[in-house]
């Protein structure tokens, strides 16, 4: 029944925003077709659009799918996915949690990968979460969902600080690759031990993973092309987790992960590519 309550709250919020918009519209100029209003009515949208998309054309486009729960059960780790695979020639993907103190979650550059990224983020309060995909023509295609939340995810201290040995494990990587699409694609899930601290707790400076790059290693240990790069920011959850769908070139034997946090800490790992194993069919429920 949380769902019902959540829907009611969102509907109510939408109504308030709608009133504000129509009141504003009566005073201001007619709607600008180059800058359409956010269908979710996020009060921060126009400012964020100008800040992050810097005058580039923006259109709301349902072909960009943003997936996230209606209600954030754990505000420190809310799963989100931005899927722009229905668009051609995507060069960049971005995720924005509008009402976070740091709204921009990440920018993703899928050079040799599908325009799809999933991760978990901190959410400070109920907010629109927008996903955006920039196509080669320079247009940002945007959609989003509302996520309700109890609040506090960004300003809560990382849990890892409660363990004595957390510093010994910073930068450790767990990862696995699934071969998909008859071996042409490789789904990479990776998890990095890191406080990913926002810096919002007094006396604790920001400390988070800032950049990650995945490169193919080819037969004979030759370095191959860079497949994907993530510019990761404060809202990504502690112990960041990412799911990427890479397109490694033929002859790829492993994926090389290189990264860095904002205090210069290095992240480095090699993830072997497994033999091609057919993935289990999850369209049927387990144990049915």
């Amino acid at each position: 029944m949380t769902g019902l309550w959540t829907n009611g709250a969102i509907a109510a919020r939408g109504a308030v925003v709608g009133l504000a918009l129509s009141a504003g519209a009566a005073l201001a100029a007619p709607p600008d077709p180059a800058n359409p209003p956010d269908p979710l009515g996020s009060v921060m949208w126009e400012a964020l659009r100008d800040q992050y998309f810097a005058g580039a054309p923006v259109q709301f486009d349902d072909r960009v799918k943003v997936r996230a729960p209606l209600d954030a059960e754990d505000t420190r780790a809310v799963p989100i996915a931005v899927d722009a695979t229905a668009l051609d020639q995507v060069v960049e993907v971005a995720a924005i949690a509008d009402l976070n103190p740091f709204p921009l979650v990440l920018r993703y550059h899928p050079m040799g990968a599908a325009p799809y990224i999933a991760t978990r983020i901190k959410i400070q309060q109920a907010t629109a979460v927008h996903g955006a995909a920039r196509t080669a023509d320079g247009v940002w295609h945007v959609s989003g969902v509302m996520v309700d939340a109890a609040g506090g995810g960004c300003s809560a201290p990382p849990l890892s600080y409660a363990t004595k040995d957390w510093a010994d494990h910073v930068g450790e990587v767990q990862a696995r690759v699934w071969r998909t699409d008859e071996g042409k694609a490789a789904r990479l899930r990776l998890r990095i031990r890191h406080p990913n601290d926002t810096g919002l707790v007094p006396g604790i400076p920001a400390y988070f993973v800032e950049s990650l790059s995945v490169r193919a290693r080819l037969d004979g240990g030759v370095s191959g092309p860079e497949l994907a790069r993530i510019d990761s920011l404060e809202p990504v959850s502690e112990d960041p987790v990412f799911l990427l769908d890479l397109r490694p070139p033929p002859g790829t034997t492993a994926l090389i992960l290189r990264g860095r946090d904002n205090q210069g800490g290095e992240i480095s790992a090699t993830v072997p590519l497994p033999a091609l194993i057919p993935a289990p069919d999850l369209s049927r429920s387990v144990g049915q």
Binding site: P69, A279, V286
Partner: peptide, 11 residues
């Protein structure tokens, strides 16, 4: 099984 299969959490 879903984690093992490489499914995403939102899915």
């Amino acid at each position: 099984a879903a984690v093992e299969a490489g499914l995403d959490m939102t899915d």
